[in-house]
Design a protein around this nucleic acid. Structure first.
Lengths: 172, 172
DNA sequence: TTGACTGTTGCGGATTTCGCAGAGTCGGGC
DNA sequence: GCCCGACTCTGCGAAATCCGCAACAGTCAA
């Protein structure tokens, strides 16, 4: 038995919402190892994960369930949008006047908006847009985004080719 | 009956634009539906997926396996990097002189580089960097990226707050 | 020490995954 | 027209996995 695994720092301050962002609660080494296993293969059996991290199958299952419930991680299929029929993507840098966070929320409410991040630099926000074709992209950028109150100006970077896209955070 | 769903390929007039997706494999409506199911829950049982898309369990399993083998999709756990201990991220716009694709490959070879895309606009490349702390980020941007031959200049956008991050392409 | 709490383990039954053989369809070559 | 190969779907039995539950172990506070 790998019972040397005592899970000392087990008591995590339960803050289901804090895991969203801000100074998130720290995951212990075991949960991190579980996440790494699932980043390699999201369908890996619990027993195999347990063997790799030194836990029983049931323990892994409960930890995974909690990580999912807390929103710390999600297990999903990811694809290259181009392969799935979305032929136009763009990164859009946004200059904001006023409440940046409010604008970010407004942009994030759009379906075509895949990714929203507040940044330091010459842009206040960067958003990734996924569209079906040129007309769709044009409409989203010129009519929808610029119509949001607080958006002063935008700069678009249309995707020509996706070269790398990994999901291996923490596995280094 | 679900059996009406057979021989889908024959009824599918090949979309000429499909051939523009980097020579990738073409996806029919059924595979697309399977992907959507797995985007909602990467661990959903094959039988449940089959019921949803009108296929047998075994057929779903084979198609999923093929999609994975072909690299069309991957089933993975995704997390908010901040939660997993990577406290500094940045989007970096890169101006390139010479072979853009070669530079993209070089940047993509870096572990800290999570995302590389060739763009049209004032940047030739945009890369997302995931680091552990400020020193790490500084080193990656100032020493590693700018040391790549062909990189003329860069502009960094340090992440302040991740507002939205979804993986629901095609499920709208 | 006691008691509350959290996390882990072990186990049985239901469910799912897996591998394989058979049947149907489509398209090419003769 | 006919046969053949490639491909995909289906059905099914065996093996592995998932899931819920009750009991056990460790931590912390009173």
């Amino acid at each position: 038995m790998h019972s040397g695994r005592v899970a000392s720092r087990s008591a995590e301050p339960r803050d289901p919402r804090e895991s969203r962002n801000g100074g998130g609660p720290h995951l212990d080494a075991v949960s991190l190892a579980i996440i790494e296993q699932l980043q390699e293969d999201g369908r890996r059996p619990y027993a195999a994960i347990g063997k790799a991290v030194g836990l029983s199958e049931a323990a892994v299952r409960q930890r995974v369930q909690k990580l999912l419930d807390q929103g710390v991680m999600q297990i999903v299929a990811v694809t290259d949008p181009l392969t799935v029929g979305f032929r136009r993507q763009a990164m859009v840098g946004v200059h904001v006047e006023g409440d940046v966070e409010a604008v970010a929320d407004a942009l994030g409410a759009m379906d075509e908006c895949e990714y929203v991040v507040m940044t330091a630099g010459s842009f206040d926000l960067m958003v990734e847009i996924v569209c079906e074709d040129d007309d769709h992209l044009l409409e989203v950028i010129n009519r929808r985004i610029r119509a949001v109150p607080g958006v002063r100006s935008t700069e678009s970077f249309v995707y020509l080719k996706l070269k790398k896209q990994t999901y291996m955070w923490g596995t280094r």
